[in-house]
Amino acid sequence: MPQYLVYFNQQWVGDHDEAWFRSRVEPSTAVVRDMQRQGVLVYAGGLVEELEEAASADATSGEVIVTDGPFAETKEWLGGLTIIDVPDDESAREWAGRVAEGCGWPQEVRRFKDGSLQAVTRQG
């Protein structure tokens, strides 16, 4: 089956108070639990929002340069992602809609290129 990335940029979240964010925990985790039950979830998680904890790696000059913070040209940055394994675009769009509804902010969904996502198992 094809695999899809459902994601959002942090800037899409909007400004909300703490109570609003707490109100999104149950609906968003309910969608993830449903994905688990239906066997379509590969991975889901949000990212740390503090950009000073980010780092960027660039090898376009022929030399690898790692710097603190997001890539200098970035105007938006990734806030979280979900990877799902579903039969078709329609199913992926339905799940993306459910994630958007659960979180309360927009999501984008894109199919991985055929053969580009490899299963990785943790050793140890």
Rank of each mutant, 00 (worst) to 15 (best):
A96S: 11
T29L: 15
P27A: 04
G102R: 04
E94D: 15
P70D: 12
R22T: 02
L41I: 06
A119D: 15
A92W: 01
V66D: 11
D88A: 04
T60H: 13
K113F: 10
E76V: 06
G124A: 14
Y7D: 05
Q3P: 04
A19K: 11
Q118L: 15
M35G: 07
Q3Y: 05
G97F: 06
Q3N: 14
L117N: 00
E73D: 14
E101K: 13
G97W: 07
N9H: 11
D68E: 15
D85E: 15
M1Y: 04
T60C: 06
G97Y: 06
S23P: 04
I84R: 03
A57L: 12
G124F: 12
G45P: 02
T82H: 04
R93Q: 14
A72Y: 14
E50G: 10
D85S: 15
V120A: 12
E76D: 10
M35I: 01
R111A: 14
A72N: 04
Y43Q: 08
T74Q: 12
G79L: 13
S61Q: 10
G14N: 07
K113P: 05
P106L: 08
V86T: 04
E90L: 04
V64N: 04
V13Q: 09
A19W: 05
R24G: 02
R122Y: 01
V40T: 09
V109P: 01
R22P: 00
E52D: 15
G45S: 11
R122E: 14
V64S: 03
A100Y: 01
T74G: 11
S56L: 10
L47C: 09
R37E: 14
V64Y: 13
E49W: 03
F71L: 13
G79T: 09
S116T: 05
T82G: 06
S91R: 14
S61V: 02
R22Y: 11
G14P: 07
A19M: 02
A57S: 10
I84M: 07
R33Q: 14
Q10G: 05
G46H: 03
L51G: 08
V42A: 09
S56Y: 06
H16Q: 12
C103S: 07
S28K: 01
W105K: 02
T67H: 04
E18F: 10
P2R: 03
A44Y: 09
E52I: 01
A119F: 15
E108A: 09
V32H: 03
Q123A: 13
F21Y: 07
K75Q: 14
A59L: 09
G97T: 07
A57H: 00
K113I: 03
E108H: 08
D58Y: 07
I84A: 00
S28Q: 08
L81T: 05
D34H: 09
V99N: 00
S28L: 13
Q123T: 05
V86H: 00
F112S: 10
A59G: 05
N9I: 06
